[in-house]
Design a protein around this nucleic acid. Structure first.
Lengths: 189, 189
DNA sequence: AGACAAAACTAACGTTTGTTAGTTAAAATT
DNA sequence: AATTTTAACTAACAAACGTTAGTTTTGTCT
């Protein structure tokens, strides 16, 4: 089914609700009300509630996949690659803070092929990141800590960024990027 | 209502399910099946599905509140306090990895007084942490970054630790603590 | 062995869920 | 102006939801 303007609107409104209560706690009637229509009318635009989640999560997952592919293939040092990954996450977060909630918390409600695809993309993403970290360690650019600890401490921060970056409101994106790189790479002491 | 042994068992089993699918997607019948009984039988032990969530989340929230109170009042440097907070989170995570999922993802489904209490505890916790960071910055022990960035980059990592610490299985707790403190405080370069 | 409490059961309740069918009003196309 | 398409509507479905009532089984203590 095509992705019409109205469909995008539904997905956007739904993502706001999913962020607040989670996919399962949001009913099709909730989404309809947000759109100012009755539940049954939604089905003129979408195939199912599942489809909304699927669009939301998989589109965003593809953004990450493309983003890290571009980083992986660029001809820079591991440390610079990690810097770019941090900036990638911040950029995506700023533009998709609602959808990111669903990606983080509701991906497990995907079904069939969609679920398989998502998990694969997620694993590949982490593996790409892991390789960059290991390379950095081998080159002596990165401290010889357990790569898994490094990977997930950075990734955890980036993945939950959507929860708080906007709370502080007027924090400029470029300032955020700078502070974030500093804190994640060089620590706080 | 008293917290009998059987009730604890229900809460424990439920938390496993909540971790996998989230509170809203887990039915009372799911929990009952996990207990090897029919849904109605659960109500000999619990008052409602809500009560399970409430016990799960508030008990754990109190652990954090007590933990940080003890850190706050101890007579050590801000940096050492942060080290202790990191260890606090790791200890709690290791012993409550299922319940932590509910605390992180399902707290918003608490109702009434429980929701208010939780949010207050959470805010107080963050405020305590923030003060420690600010003190560290003033004393020159901590780099002069935006305290909010420091607060949430550390807290994000600690809060989502439950998602991955056990994936790597045989990672010793003390090794984890050491690496975690190193990465979060001194960075990776 | 009989009495009593604890904890399981079956059956059912009123709601809410996602979704379909059929209809009608508005908009776009011929 | 007539016709087709789009997008809203009402009504209803079967299934699943949390929960209650009433009954039977299980285990414990005298």
């Amino acid at each position: 089914m095509k992705l019409t303007a109205r469909k995008v609107e539904i997905v956007t409104k739904a993502s706001r609700l999913f962020k607040e209560k989670g996919y399962s706690a949001v009913s099709v009637r909730d989404i309809a009300q947000e759109m100012g229509m009755k539940a049954a009318s939604l089905y003129n635009h979408i195939e199912s509630k599942q489809e909304i989640l699927s669009i939301l999560v998989l589109d965003l997952a593809r953004d990450f996949t493309c983003g890290i592919a571009s980083v992986r293939e660029s001809n820079i040092s591991p440390l610079e690659k990690i810097e770019q990954i941090i900036e990638l996450h911040i950029d995506i977060t700023v533009n998709n803070s609602e959808a990111l909630a669903a990606l983080n918390n509701d991906w497990m409600h995907l079904e069939g092929e969609d679920l398989i695809d998502f998990v694969k993309m997620r694993e590949d993403y982490e593996e790409d990141f892991r390789k960059i970290i290991k390379e950095g360690v081998e080159l002596g650019q990165i401290q010889p800590r357990h790569p898994e600890v490094i990977l997930f401490s950075i990734l955890s921060t980036l993945r939950t960024l959507y929860l708080w970056y906007q709370k502080r409101g007027k924090l400029d994106v470029n300032v955020l990027k700078k502070d974030m790189v500093a804190v994640l790479l060089r620590g706080i002491v």
